[in-house]
């Protein structure tokens, strides 16, 4: 969870913890990048408007690093206009939540990305299992 405003960050972190998620917090884009490289999280919740490095710049930096490029990013912003959304869309962010944020919406959007990752893992397990069995095992049933 990345937000430069300590109060907002604290509230958001408390809400997501209460939903049962494990959260690491960062108060700047630079810190977010460092943490994401060290311990890639399942999902990054990223505030758009931050001094020095804004959310879009962070997303670009994440994309440039193969280790973090595929981490889903949910953009949080008080600036909900077409231009901001369009930029998020063009940068391939996974979702976009406008402030004021409703806790239920926040949880639902996080769950959507976790479900996607769960589907990914299930498909990977199937692939792995097929690769372990005979190379072209054509047993029926």
């Amino acid at each position: 969870m990345v937000d430069d405003d300590p109060d907002t960050l604290a509230i958001l972190v408390r809400y997501i913890r209460r939903e049962g998620f494990t959260v690491t917090q960062a108060c700047s884009g630079t810190e977010c990048l460092r943490l994401a490289q060290q311990h890639p999280p399942d999902v990054i919740l990223l505030d758009l408007m931050m001094p020095e490095m804004d959310g879009f710049a962070v997303r670009r930096a994440l994309m440039a690093d193969p280790g973090t490029a595929e981490i889903p990013v949910i953009m949080l912003t008080a600036r909900d206009d077409v231009e901001a959304r369009a930029q998020g869309m063009e940068l391939g962010v996974s979702d976009f939540i406008a402030k004021p944020i409703v806790r239920r919406e926040l949880a639902e959007r996080i769950h959507a990305q976790l479900d996607m990752l769960a589907a990914d893992r299930a498909n990977f397990a199937t692939l792995d299992q097929l690769n372990r069995s005979k190379p072209n095992g054509s047993k029926k049933g």
Partner: peptide, 14 residues
């Protein structure tokens, strides 16, 4: 109570 989180960024108004 409803869990609406308003941003600290945009001050009192939001």
């Amino acid at each position: 109570r409803c869990g609406v989180i308003t941003s600290g960024n945009d001050g009192e108004s939001a």
